[in-house]
Every structure is written in structure tokens, then in C-alpha cells.
Nucleic acid binder design. Structure first.
Length: 227
DNA sequence: AAGGGTTACAACCGCAGTAGG
DNA sequence: TCCTACTGCGGTTGTAACCCT
């Protein structure tokens, strides 16, 4: 495992490698990860450097086990967002997508009695970038980005993302494009669904408790959809 | 004490999106 | 417009630590 086909090293990072990477970031800042190997002699590819910094070395990364509040927040956000770990992590201060993902897969799946099989979640649930559910959110992104379709005029169209959630269930069925989304909104299901923007969902800033209160207001089903 | 199984988490892989030339 | 490099994401794998017999 010491070396792959190229000259880059793989596997666990040593203390010395961490030190080199931290010194580089202190001097040059984040970014330009691919130049680190040339400038420092560190035998790690840029991708590996970036991951190491983002997931471990960055001072903003919180270490240690998840608190009950964080756990609750992750559960709620996962129910809403599915396996979009980076989005979830962005709402849990100090936690990375990798931490959230690992915590979900090792602790929460077990705790919630979820059959932890990623392939299952791929096919039936709300996860993965190739799923229909992902298409749903991407379609929603399109709506927001194009200012094409304000559902009722009450939504802050400056939001980065919007999500459609059914009362009493989880998320909308697949939406392949904005036209279809428009149909959905106009159709009978409209009365049983609502739209919320990223700003509404998250706020700026939004504390864990306020998000919890927000979601409690909609009685979101905490069972995991199809996982 | 040993070693086999399990758990938790760090790290890698492959793909997609994007910016710049 | 195309190509390339870079970045970010989610799924998966590898491995150290722990647990159980």
C-alpha cells in the first residue's frame, strides 16, 4: 500500500505529512492542492491533500463523537435531504461530509433500524447523484436559478436551493425537468405539498434548535424513505 | 493470552461540474 | 467551442482499535 503506480503515496497520513500540509496551508492558503507535491515534496496527490485538510486538519473541524443535538439534526436533515452529505454537513457546525456520512452509516442506520445497504438506498430511496430523487432536487435548482417558477410568490427566490416536501410523508417523486415540476405544482398534489427555500430551511444563520423547531412544525416523518 | 469477528473512521475512487485557456 | 485542470461530492474500501470467545 505504500505506493501506487505513480509516485504518490497512499494510505494513512503520518504526523510529519500532516505537519507539512498544515505549514503549506498556513503559508499559501487553501486551494492549489495539486501544487503541494511540487512545492513541498509531499508525496501525496492534490486530491488526497485536500481531503486530509478538509476532513481532519482544518481548524474548523470538530473532533470527537457527535452530541445528541448533532445526532438529532443529522437525522432530521437526512430525512429531508437524503444522502446529500455535504449539504447536511454544511448545516452541522464543525462537521464534515465524511464525518456525517460515517456517523450515519455506522451509528444512525443501526440506531434507526435501517438496512444499511447503499445499493438499496440507491435504487429505492433518496440518495446518490444518479437517483431520481437527485434529479428532483436538481430540477428544483433549475427553477430557482432561472426564476422560472415562483410557486406562490412567497418564497425568497434568492435562495440557493428549494425543496418540495409532502406533509405527512417525505419528498416528492422524481422530477426530471422544470416543466414537469411545474406540472406537479399545478396538479392536485399541490395542495398537499409545500415549498421551502434554502433560506427558509436553514436561515442565515440558523441554529440547531431553530431548525428543529422549524421542522417540528411540519411533523416530518423521521422514518427513512425506502432505505 | 490469542485470534477471529466486529466496529468506527480515515482515506480512496470514480464521476460530474466548472473555470480558464 | 473544445479541452484540460481542478474541485467537490457520494459511494466504497482499508485498517486500526475494540470486543468476544
Amino acid at each position: 500500500m505504500e505506493e501506487s503506480g505513480n509516485h504518490y503515496k497512499k494510505g494513512l497520513w503520518t504526523v510529519e505529512e500532516d505537519r507539512i500540509l498544515m505549514e503549506y496551508v498556513e503559508v499559501h492558503g487553501k486551494g492549489k492542492w495539486n501544487s503541494i507535491a511540487k512545492k513541498t515534496g509531499l508525496r501525496r496527490c492534490g486530491k488526497s491533500c485536500r481531503l486530509r485538510w478538509m476532513n481532519y486538519l482544518s481548524p474548523s473541524v470538530k473532533r470527537g463523537s457527535f452530541t445528541e443535538e448533532e445526532e438529532d439534526l443529522v437525522i432530521r436533515l437526512h430525512n429531508l435531504l437524503g444522502n446529500r452529505w455535504s449539504l447536511i454537513a454544511g448545516r452541522v457546525p464543525g462537521r464534515t461530509d465524511n464525518q456525517v456520512k460515517n456517523y450515519w452509516n455506522t451509528h444512525l442506520c443501526k440506531k434507526l433500524g435501517i438496512k444499511n445497504k447503499q445499493t438499496g438506498s440507491r435504487s429505492g430511496g433518496f440518495s446518490g447523484k444518479s437517483t431520481n430523487s437527485m434529479a428532483s432536487i436538481k430540477a428544483s435548482d433549475k427553477l430557482i436559478n432561472s426564476n422560472l417558477y415562483p410557486p406562490d410568490g412567497s418564497i425568497d427566490m434568492g435562495a440557493n436551493e428549494i425543496f418540495q416536501v409532502n406533509k405527512g410523508s417525505s419528498l416528492e417523486p422524481p422530477v426530471e425537468d422544470s416543466d414537469y415540476a411545474q406540472e406537479l405544482m399545478i396538479g392536485d398534489d399541490f395542495a398537499n405539498s409545500f415549498w421551502l427555500s434554502n433560506d427558509e430551511l436553514i436561515g442565515t444563520p440558523l441554529s440547531n434548535s431553530s431548525l428543529g423547531e422549524f421542522m417540528d412544525g411540519y411533523s416530518l416523518d423521521l422514518s427513512c424513505h425506502g432505505l
